[in-house]
Design a protein around this nucleic acid. Structure first.
Lengths: 187, 187
DNA sequence: GTGCGAGGCTAATGGCATTAGCTTTTGGGC
DNA sequence: GCCCAAAAGCTAATGCCATTAGCCTCGCAC
């Protein structure tokens, strides 16, 4: 057996995610991670290459976590039912981890480390839309529209950007309905 | 007359915006601003209270700039025409200043400095939707839906988040059409 | 039991924001 | 034209952070 390390990359990322959840992405600092894992700051470099790489790992985790949760929400459903499940699961994830959500990478396809997870995420949305029988580019545009709505809403809500008292559930319901009406080709 | 300073808060913010445009928000650093304005770093504190406050000023500028541009795009128009003008102006602003766009505050209403500009921005959207005769909360929800779409798309595009080759103009056209169809269908 | 490599440590460097306290400049009052 | 108060600049110092270099140690493989 190999030497059992007290610390592993996975544990470092765990600590990083806790910090992000508690104090936001801007508080993700190597010295804070070191303090939390009970190690001196430079020791972290045995498990990660840099702060930037750690951020990449954190983003990857968030993306994988979202894909897993949304997959669970969507399986066994089709059509509007599946789309609704996906979109409400998206918002629910953001509400459970508002700060963590903001650590999700916006452009996973351009990052070597995150690319695979990004593709899986996209394929999940594409699969969710399968029963609408969209062809080629139309399917891509439909996934983009969904992402724009889900991410647009989530990023504003998680930043506390909706300043007025009107019910956010209502706004999101309207957005989901709008997206579905559009998908069905209503006008 | 008061003493004429070589530097003013406005000039400091100008330099900060240039830095943001060139290298992104994360490159907005007091020493970089000092270098650009030809001054020692601590001298900046005669014009701003802290890096955080400077970020606030930058966000305020962006918000004011957007409101001014969008106002120009919308005046003299009504109904779908006005909404289209607003939404296309929104994307055009982001395309001209992709990095600067990301410095726009997500929650201006919660910031003392930015509150007034945030209210004006919101009132512009409300005014743009005036001719649809939306009442009370319905008007708020409609502005939120518009913001979700415009900001969702802009934030993803400005981050290079659309990884596939499909035409982004098409996607945005579809989103605008979807929003308008939904607006008309309401009542 | 020895050796070696993984994983920990301390020390040092350099960038950054921020504060304290000094100096210089400038425009208005005389 | 001269003086001065305050505005606006400066240098020095502090403390936090990431990162690098180089050393120590311990446990498994042999």
């Amino acid at each position: 057996m190999a030497v059992r390390p007290r610390l592993t990359t996975a544990k470092v990322v765990d600590a990083a995610l806790e910090l992000v959840d508690e104090h936001g992405v801007e508080a993700l600092t190597l010295s804070a991670v070191a303090a939390r894992t009970g190690v001196a700051t430079p020791s972290l470099y045995k498990h990660i290459a840099s702060l930037g790489e750690l951020r990449g790992h954190v983003g990857l985790r968030v993306m994988e976590e979202m894909t897993a949760r949304f997959t669970g929400a969507v399986v066994g459903r089709a059509g509007d039912d599946a789309v609704r499940a996906l979109m409400y699961a998206y918002r629910a994830y953001m509400q459970e981890h508002p700060k963590r959500y903001l650590a999700a990478p916006m452009d996973p396809l351009h990052d070597e480390l995150q690319r695979e997870a990004g593709v899986k995420f996209m394929e999940l949305i594409l699969a969710t839309l399968r029963s609408y029988g969209l062809e080629g580019s139309n399917a891509i545009h439909a996934t983009r529209r969904l992402r724009v709505i889900a991410h647009g809403f989530a990023s504003i809500e998680s930043s506390g950007g909706f300043g007025l008292p009107e019910d956010l559930d209502d706004t999101y319901d309207q957005l989901v309905r709008m997206y579905l009406d559009d998908l069905r080709g209503q006008s």
